[in-house]
Computed example of a mutant assay.
Amino acid sequence: MPELPEVETSVQAIQEFADQSLESIEIYNPNLRWKVDSKSFKKLFGLKVNKINRRAKYILLHIEKSQILIHLGMTGTLRIANKKSNFYKKHDHIEFIFQKGKLIFNDPRRFGSMHLIGEPSKHFLLDKLGPEPLSREFDGEYFFQKIKKSLSPIKNALMNQQNVVGIGNIYANEILFDARIRPTRKSKTITKKEHNKIAESAKKILKIAIKAGGTTLKDFYKPDGNKGYFKIDLAVYDRANEKCKNCKKESIIRIIQSQRATFYCRKCQT
Rank of each mutant, 00 (worst) to 15 (best):
K149D: 13
E137L: 14
H195D: 02
F143D: 02
K146I: 05
Y171T: 02
F144L: 06
F143S: 02
L151G: 15
Q145I: 03
N169A: 12
S152E: 15
G166Q: 12
F138L: 08
Q162G: 11
E141H: 07
F144A: 01
Q162S: 15
A172C: 11
S135L: 12
I208D: 14
L134R: 04
K207D: 00
V164R: 06
F143Y: 14
N163Q: 08
F143G: 04
G140T: 06
N173H: 12
S187F: 12
K192Y: 04
L151P: 12
K203G: 00
V164P: 01
K188N: 10
K197P: 01
S187L: 07
G168K: 13
K203M: 01
E200I: 01
G140D: 04
L134S: 08
K188M: 13
D139H: 14
N173K: 10
K186V: 04
V165C: 14
I170T: 03
K207Q: 13
K186N: 10
Q162L: 11
F177V: 04
F143P: 00
I175P: 02
Q145N: 15
P183A: 05
M159W: 15
I205K: 05
L206R: 06
I181M: 06
K192D: 01
R136V: 06
Q161T: 15
E141D: 15
E194V: 04
E141A: 10
N196R: 04
G140P: 08
S135P: 08
S187V: 03
S152R: 15
K186D: 09
E137N: 14
T184Y: 00
V164F: 11
G166R: 08
S150D: 14
K188Y: 14
K193D: 00
E194N: 00
E200N: 08
V165Y: 07
I154M: 13
P133Q: 05
E174Q: 11
L158F: 11
A172H: 10
K197A: 07
T191K: 07
K188W: 09
T184H: 02
K155Y: 12
V164Q: 04
I190L: 07
A199E: 02
Y142N: 07
V164L: 09
K148Q: 14
R185P: 00
I190N: 01
D139R: 07
N169P: 13
H195F: 05
L158V: 09
N173W: 10
R182H: 11
A179D: 06
P153M: 09
I198V: 10
L176C: 03
K155A: 10
G166L: 14
P133M: 09
Q161G: 10
A157H: 12
K148C: 11
I167Q: 08
H195N: 08
I181Y: 04
G140F: 01
D139T: 09
I181W: 05
K146F: 08
F144S: 03
T189L: 12
S135Y: 14
N156C: 13
D178V: 13
R136G: 10
I181G: 01
P183I: 02
N163E: 11
I208W: 00
K149G: 12
D139A: 07
K155W: 12
I181V: 09
I167H: 09
